[in-house]
Every structure is written in structure tokens, then in C-alpha cells.
Simulated scan of single mutants.
Amino acid sequence: MPTELINGFGKVYLTIEYDSVNHWVYNNWIGYQTYVGIIKGADECLYPLQENNCAYLLNDNRQVLGPWNHAVEWLVTQWAPRAMAQGLTHFAQVVSPESFAAQSAEAMYIGISDRFQMRMFGSITDAQAWLREEQRLTAQAQRKP
């Protein structure tokens, strides 16, 4: 069952769900994002990653309105190290390429792409395909003697 986070206007701004079939956490961010909301949401997504020993995150920003540059530094310096420490290795970021949110995602990518595998996608299908392929490659590498 997904976790829904509600903003000050009573609207859902983030749903977080562990996808047990694909073994990844799916975050769906919606609307305008505040600094406080981003911090709460990013922290909340760590729980299903940890509880399910999950190394894969599918972060969907296609429905985000406006930039979220105000939180990039915190995500890079505070959230990313904690996510890595609990095992996050692959981060698929889905954005609408023409949106302000895409610019914020690019800034985040520059800040954390050297810490774990992060890729940006304009299509959810492409992001899912990349995560599946990375899971396949990881499983294949683990089977080798």
C-alpha cells in the first residue's frame, strides 16, 4: 500500500510505494514542491528502501510543477550519503525534459552521479527498462564465481 504525503493545502504531493514485483521503490512527486516537503518526502522514501533491502529507486517528477533547486544542496549533502549507506545503488530520475523540474534534476545529477548510478529519463518506460537491465547485470555478476 502506498504512503501518501499531504501538503499544507491538503493535497497529495508524493506517493511512495515499494514495488515487490520489480524490487524497487517508486516515488511519484506531484505539483509544487517546498523545501520542507522535499526533505520529508526524501526521508520517507528511505524507509521502504531499508525495510525491503532495496537498492533501486524510481523517482518520477513528470507531474512536478516548477523548480526545486532550493533543495538540491540538501539532497546532495544530506540525503544521498544516507541513501547510499543503506544500500541505494541505482537511481532512475524521470522528468519532463522541458520542465523547470528537469533543470533541478540536472543539478542534482551533477551533485550525486559520482556516488551511485543515477540516470535521467524523459520516459517512465525507459527508466523502468534501465532499472531492470541493471538488476539483471547485478544478478549475473553475483552468480559468477
Score class of each variant (00 low, 15 high):
residue 128 Q to D: 00
residue 23 H to C: 12
residue 60 D to Y: 03
residue 45 C to L: 15
residue 21 V to P: 06
residue 131 L to C: 04
residue 114 D to C: 09
residue 133 E to H: 13
residue 130 W to F: 01
residue 18 Y to D: 01
residue 59 N to G: 06
residue 35 Y to P: 03
residue 97 P to D: 04
residue 39 I to W: 07
residue 99 S to M: 12
residue 24 W to Q: 00
residue 33 Q to F: 02
residue 120 M to D: 01
residue 61 N to W: 06
residue 22 N to M: 11
residue 84 M to R: 15
residue 27 N to E: 15
residue 78 Q to T: 15
residue 70 H to M: 13
residue 102 A to E: 02
residue 41 G to T: 07
residue 60 D to L: 05
residue 25 V to L: 12
residue 23 H to N: 14
residue 116 F to A: 06
residue 124 I to G: 00
residue 120 M to V: 04
residue 27 N to K: 10
residue 129 A to R: 14
residue 26 Y to K: 13
residue 19 D to L: 07
residue 50 Q to H: 14
residue 128 Q to V: 05
residue 30 I to A: 05
residue 42 A to M: 14
residue 54 C to L: 09
residue 94 V to P: 01
residue 123 S to L: 11
residue 51 E to F: 12
residue 112 I to F: 06
residue 83 A to T: 13
residue 80 A to Y: 02
residue 63 Q to T: 10
residue 35 Y to N: 08
residue 65 L to R: 14
residue 82 R to K: 15
residue 55 A to I: 10
residue 78 Q to S: 15
residue 110 I to K: 14
residue 100 F to P: 06
residue 93 Q to F: 00
residue 72 V to S: 01
residue 79 W to H: 07
residue 97 P to H: 06
residue 112 I to V: 11
residue 64 V to H: 03
residue 24 W to L: 03
residue 84 M to C: 12
residue 39 I to G: 05
residue 39 I to K: 15
residue 54 C to I: 08
residue 33 Q to L: 07
residue 127 A to T: 02
residue 26 Y to D: 05
residue 102 A to T: 02
residue 125 T to K: 13
residue 92 A to W: 01
residue 99 S to W: 08
residue 134 E to H: 10
residue 97 P to F: 05
residue 111 G to H: 02
residue 73 E to S: 14
residue 80 A to C: 09
residue 24 W to H: 04
residue 35 Y to R: 09
residue 95 V to C: 01
residue 88 L to G: 06
residue 29 W to E: 02
residue 46 L to S: 08
residue 135 Q to K: 15
residue 111 G to L: 04
residue 106 E to K: 14
residue 92 A to I: 02
residue 122 G to S: 15
residue 58 L to S: 05
residue 47 Y to R: 15
residue 39 I to N: 05
residue 27 N to R: 10
residue 76 V to M: 07
residue 83 A to P: 08
residue 120 M to H: 00
residue 28 N to C: 12
residue 115 R to E: 10
residue 125 T to V: 13
residue 70 H to T: 11
residue 109 Y to T: 02
residue 118 M to P: 00
residue 106 E to F: 13
residue 36 V to H: 12
residue 46 L to A: 09
residue 113 S to I: 03
residue 122 G to E: 14
residue 110 I to R: 14
residue 97 P to M: 05
residue 61 N to H: 15
residue 109 Y to P: 01
residue 98 E to S: 06
residue 22 N to W: 08
residue 136 R to Q: 08
residue 25 V to M: 11
residue 114 D to P: 03
residue 22 N to A: 13
residue 80 A to W: 00
residue 46 L to F: 10
residue 123 S to H: 14
residue 136 R to G: 04
residue 77 T to K: 15
residue 54 C to M: 11
residue 14 L to V: 05
residue 33 Q to C: 04
residue 118 M to W: 03
residue 63 Q to G: 06
residue 100 F to I: 14
residue 61 N to L: 14
residue 98 E to M: 06
residue 70 H to I: 11
residue 111 G to P: 00
residue 89 T to F: 00
residue 55 A to D: 11
residue 52 N to S: 10
residue 15 T to V: 04
residue 69 N to C: 05
residue 53 N to I: 08
residue 47 Y to W: 11
residue 64 V to M: 08
